[in-house]
Design a protein around this nucleic acid. Sequence first.
RNA 1: CGGGAGGUAGCGCAGUUUGGUCAGCGCGCAACGUUCGGGACGUUGAAGCCGCGGGUUCGAAUCCCGCCCUCCCGACCA
Length: 409
Amino acid sequence: MKFSESFIFTARQDPKVAECRSHKLLLKGCFLFMVSSGIYSYLPLAWRVLDKINSIIRRNMNSCGAQELLMSALQPIEMWRKTGRDKDLAEVMFRFSDRKERELCLGPTHEEEITEIARRYLVSYKQLPCVLYQIQTKFRDEPRPRFGLMRSCEFIMKDAYSFDADEEGLDKNYEKMLYAYKKIFAECGLDFVMVEADSGAMGGSLSHEFMVPSGIGEDVLLKCGKCGKYYKDAGECPRCREKLTPEKNIEIGHIFKLGTKYSLAQQGLFLDETGERKPFIMGCYGIGVSRILSAIAEVSSDEKGIIWPRKVSPFDVSLIVLGEDLKEDAFRVEEELNSRGYSVLVDERNEAAGVKFNDAYLIGNPYILIMGKKYKESGKIDVEIRKDRKKLSFSKEEVISFIEDEYAG
RNA sequence: CGGGAGGUAGCGCAGUUUGGUCAGCGCGCAACGUUCGGGACGUUGAAGCCGCGGGUUCGAAUCCCGCCCUCCCGACCA
């Protein structure tokens, strides 16, 4: 893609509305458009990243045997009355009524709706286990949106729900999901920690949170200085007896063993082998998709901009062209890379070199190719690695295989 | 919802104390020329309900009253 034709319009100065690093960089780099407090539009750059995160999630969910669906965002309040959560979640629900006076809300979460779906179709033990998931926008009336995308009123979430005939089945699905989550976050390039957590308003017996230590965020965990383990609450490290120090974290995932809370309240019943009616044993598994984006921007960045991990970067490669007469050659390099499956952002704008370098750092693609004076003289293309700003120099053929090697590794 | 800070051109800001001389600066944008491996230079130009509504005054970005919006800290956080 040619930079001059792309919807990328970076800012030179830091935006005033942003205080934390990810918020600042995402606005400055033209990833996000702030509509209002806690409400954002994802611009093309961010959407490319989200698309990649979603692909990683889908691949890992599908390989667990989970099936994707998409539930409604509009939900009748009536559905929530069965579980009593119309009251528990009253504060966070965007509620209103339509012209027929039907009471509605914008879905803040979907346990009730998925249970309605499950009870309609899953009527026999033979249909279990069953795992369904969706990637969808959730709506929550936050009293205080914060840190840009970190806590917003509208956000993208992956939520999965498991239905089993017995506890053993739930344990199995829970383990599978836990394993998949580890793979997903690792693929997204995030260092995360896992802690046991409260089930809160979700209910149920066991839950784990996935956290990114970041120095900012809303969840404080206690870290053991000796073994490095994190705890939700404890006076001292149960293993080392070492003092614990509080550290801020970003929660990017949360999984719950729900048990029968919803199936009992909503008559989510099936017939077992003996012909007895039994409630589903349920689990639910959430990932804050848009929060992953901001978590990466928060922890994987420097003063110049974001440093996207390879698998989620908006483009695989930035290509800076310095010199009007080199454009055609640059487009040929782009084509070569495209044909091998790599996306390239070719900066062929008529801008000063410094502008192009700084924009490349801000946008944060993992590799920056430079075609300029050196290419004219010796046919060499410089490669700058965004992560550590290390510089290498290659011939045209070598560059292609270098990129291939990097992405293969 | 409590406490703090702020709202002036697309973005970042000065001006408000002491009302007039105030519609300003930088960046960006448009045009032309020179540049072209590290946020270039010159010339010219377009762009503003000074957050909104009342009030005081001969006169309000500036003073008074009310409201709205944004950020930060706290409460809240499925």
